[in-house]
């Protein structure tokens, strides 16, 4: 092409330094510092809390049957581990959470797509789902127990219900608010139905999907404990009830800490997925 125009002179990419030019080769030191500092800073408060806990527990201010020492909790953990039951409790709970989370999110995404894209379907489904959502989570436990038995199915079903609603609500509303101009663009270029969904709507709601998945995961852990508290022979929720009934305050603390750590770990995994997806689909 031998066309000439002043355009190339007039306009240049706005952010050339970000994407166009190759990044200068970085030494490993600043790259490592970038994550070392937040990790160190984030570890300060937990360590300080453990120190304070140790101080209070050994000072005699609180009776030892009400507050174990950090080392006592650690010992309880090691004890359960050596008996081979700690792993079982953690594994079965994690399995329930992940299964329920996946089932609930997938159903939530599917239903949200249908409800978010069609006003008529939304009018049909939305009031019913809204009412189901208003039912407190624990209200499902007896019914699910009766229908499915106090087994894996009923627990996974309960967790799936918990994971379903954040995904359904957030994604359906995000789909309704996708830029109408972009939708019209897709239509005017011959896209409709599932093709249009894949071209415009789904990519546009990727950020909403991710934040809803994080919410759903937190809900899944919440519903797990609810389900296991009320009928289980294995799992972290069962360990809580069992420890309470046997006065094992050290195991109670251990379980609570384990739930915190596991919740944070799974959330971090979704966070990694988030960073990857936003790089691909974010604007």
């Amino acid at each position: 092409m031998s066309l000439s125009s002043p355009l190339s002179v007039l306009e240049r990419p706005v952010v050339t330094d970000v994407a166009a030019s190759p990044a200068p080769v970085e030494t490993s030191t600043p790259r490592r510092r970038r994550w070392v500092r937040p990790v160190l800073l984030g570890a300060v408060l937990p360590l300080a809390l453990i120190a304070l806990w140790q101080l209070i527990a050994t000072s005699g201010l609180v009776a030892s049957y009400r507050l174990p020492t950090p080392l006592g909790v650690w010992a309880a953990g090691v004890d359960l581990y050596e008996r081979g039951v700690l792993y079982q409790h953690v594994a079965i709970s994690t399995q329930r959470v992940l299964l329920g989370f996946v089932i609930g999110s997938v159903v939530g995404l599917a239903l949200a797509s249908v409800v978010g894209l069609s006003a008529r379907v939304s009018e049909f489904f939305a009031p019913t789902l809204g009412a189901l959502r208003a039912v407190p989570s624990l209200a499902w436990v007896p019914l699910l127990g009766l229908y499915l038995g106090y087994n894996e199915d009923s627990k996974v079903a309960l967790i799936a219900i918990g994971a379903f609603f954040p995904v359904y609500t957030t994604v359906a509303s995000a789909l309704r608010h996708v830029d109408a101009h972009l939708v019209e663009l897709g239509r005017s270029y011959g896209y409709s139905g599932p093709a249009l969904l894949g071209l415009v709507q789904l990519p546009a709601v990727v950020p909403a999907v991710i934040s809803s998945l994080r919410l759903a995961l937190a809900q899944a852990w919440l519903f797990l404990v609810a389900g296991e508290l009320l009928g289980a022979s294995l799992g972290l929720g069962f360990l809580l009830v069992d420890s309470q009934q046997n006065g094992r305050i050290d195991r109670l603390f251990l379980t609570i800490i384990l739930l915190g750590v596991l919740g944070k770990l799974t959330d971090t995994a979704v966070g990694v997925l988030e960073r990857f997806l936003l790089k691909r689909w974010g604007s």
Binding site: E11, P13, V18, A19, A20
Partner: peptide, 21 residues
């Protein structure tokens, strides 16, 4: 893209370019 003189910017995302581009 060559016709509209954007061959060199073809890999960029819309937020990285000007209104005219």
């Amino acid at each position: 893209l060559e016709l509209v003189k954007l061959s060199e910017s073809a890999h960029l995302r819309p937020r990285e370019i000007s209104g005219g581009m």
